[in-house]
Design a protein around this nucleic acid. Structure first.
Lengths: 350, 350
DNA sequence: TCGAGGGCGGAGAGCGCTCTCCCTTTGTGC
DNA sequence: GCACAAAGGGAGAGCGCTCTCCGCCCTCGA
């Protein structure tokens, strides 16, 4: 900023600062990194020199010697023989969920000065690349959004003992850290609420049953209903999409027109389901009570606003980041899981 | 993978590869970077050695000498005296728009091996930090999602002559590259369509009029309507939020109950507006035709599906990345703008 | 008064890579 | 057969930083 002509040519280095401050490079480094006690007076002199020169540490040089990059990656893993340009990924990114995770992760990363890199792992090769990326010090660790049960990435990460934290329990048990929500407990909240409302004919629209979240929400709901004395709950697979939710609700109404309460395993599916109910002239919640899952923005924008099981996405994402940073810091290979309690957010649909 | 005991201790370096291949470090470097002609036979020997050792170039070391990082940042700039933990940012991330941009940018970045870092600039300090980040070689350039008209970031970037591309024309003219959609043309599509439908009493719900997108969509629509002989179009500010859209529609109905066609400056607002119409017993499109703007996922999930002006977000984001990479590559400080043509996506609402 | 010890700053060795020289080898034209 | 050119490969100098060692000096106890 001092002489704006060609200062961009060579950026100030530690050496420059040292010269201005009249000390050695090492001392400046110590001051900047707050390592060892430096004479308070010198400390000030150095900082003054830093501001005077407009010095900013060069991350590449620092990484080179420390072996740390000060960056972690958010990996969106979608590997299941899918082409790189498959529209699914686009759909995923346009799902508010993704943004909420990013927001949660950044809320932790920002204060600690760690950078976030975004990585898509579209196929198995890309997964391998992720592992090598982190092993060669491209990033210090990864938080993973794994979208499919047969995703090879979690296994690769676990085997390579790479610092990693998953969102959601891995499909197969393996030594890797993750955060998750207590799904059974959430499903129980929904079940108890529907029973308390006096629903007599309860059904459920499930997510894909090959995904842990899909299975758990379905089984958890059935178990909770059984505890309430309801032996059988009809279920329809909605595949976690809005359209799937519509189709499932159509089938449900056709086969069980007497239904008066539905637990839908995701808000997006619930949104679809409620549209079908409306089209069929069923009022929500008077004719049919609907409970969703996630508390995504879809829950608020649907009409009526959706009663739903809240999954604290931002908090969970923040915890992922926290776990990862700790893991990286301690260099210890310990796996941890943190399970969040779901809430029932009561709105108008049930 | 060969001896899995403690290979993670020291990763293979160029030196190791050179030794295995029986050549010098320089030659391996040349092969890896495809620089100068290397004897084809040696070429193969080197690559074999690379795979044998499992070598991956260390990016930090490379950056240090080349001065390039091979990474760009996606900056979400939200600086307007807003606290870092302001819920607005959370809301923004949960907007599908953000994910679509990410997807578009990554589609270009991935093939070229450039990494994407995510940066939030919540206040003016953070903006300054972005500039210094790039000037000191943290990233090679930035693509910017600037959310507010008085955001200081574009100006800072332009002044610092940092490689940068904005999404959307900057609020004030300045030498900086950007991509945008031909808003007037899009508004004209909407106007012509409403007229062609035979709408007699047309109104518009605008976005925040202190944002270029808000102003342009409003003025563009008015101009197009004027061209069709309609001198005056009532407008209501919906502030680009769903709730704002609801409020605006309520006022519109109160003051102009005869309205039979509305151009709403964003799909999200349109979604809110249509809910109000439905609640008031107005059918869409028979009583009131509604046209949105953006073609976001909200357009598809609303009922009826929204006729809307398509803004090719993914394509525009991809173009941002392309422009930025070119700019970085050529090291020339030239600003470019690319304007995309909007389409009218006709669905059921108009 | 002197020695031991501790606190604090400096010197210098790399981290892994690229890139500029320079040398060797081989090819080519007369 | 000789001179020259061109092309391929090696040596080595850093890029900017951290961190280990080392030495200075000051303090404290005997």
């Amino acid at each position: 900023m001092t002489s704006d002509q060609t200062p961009a040519q060579r950026l100030p280095t530690l050496e420059d600062v040292a010269q201005v401050a009249g000390v050695s490079r090492a001392t400046v480094s110590r001051v900047i990194n707050n390592i060892r006690n430096v004479d308070p007076q010198l400390h000030k002199v150095v900082w003054d020199a830093v501001t005077a020169t407009g010095y900013v540490p060069n991350r590449a040089a620092r990484s080179l010697v420390t072996g740390r990059t000060g960056a972690i990656a958010l990996v969106v893993s979608e590997a299941e023989n899918r082409a790189a340009d498959d529209p699914f990924l686009g759909r995923f990114f346009s799902d508010p969920f993704f943004g909420r995770v990013v927001g949660g992760v950044l809320s932790v990363l920002r204060p600690s000065g760690v950078h976030l890199a975004l990585v898509l792992a579209g196929d198995e090769d890309a997964c391998a690349k992720v592992v090598s990326d982190v092993r060669q010090g491209q990033v210090d660790g990864v938080v993973v959004l794994s979208l499919h049960p047969h995703d090879p990435l979690p296994r690769l990460l676990a085997d390579a003992a790479v610092p990693a934290v998953l969102y959601g329990r891995p499909a197969a048990p393996m030594p890797i850290s993750y955060v998750d929500v207590a799904t059974y407990q959430g499903a129980k909240l929904a079940a108890d609420h529907l029973i308390a409302r006096g629903c007599q004919h309860v059904a459920t629209i499930s997510g894909s049953v090959d995904m842990p979240a899909g299975v758990d929400r379905l089984n958890g709901f059935r178990e909770a209903m059984a505890k309430q004395g309801v032996a059988y709950v009809p279920s329809y697979d909605g595949g976690f999409t809005q359209e799937g939710g519509e189709r499932a609700m159509e089938r449900l109404l056709a086969e069980h027109p007497e239904v008066d309460g539905v637990f839908v395993a995701s808000d997006v599916m619930a949104q679809g389901a409620m549209m079908v109910l409306r089209d069929r002239g069923k009022s929500v919640p008077d004719d049919v009570a609907v409970i969703g899952f996630d508390d995504s923005s879809a829950a608020l924008s649907s009409r009526p606003p959706l009663t739903t099981v809240r999954q604290p996405v931002e908090d969970m994402a923040a915890e992922m980041a926290r776990l990862l940073l700790t893991r990286i810091d301690q260099r210890a290979n310990r796996t941890t899981s943190v399970i969040f309690d779901p809430d029932l957010v009561q709105r108008a649909s049930a």
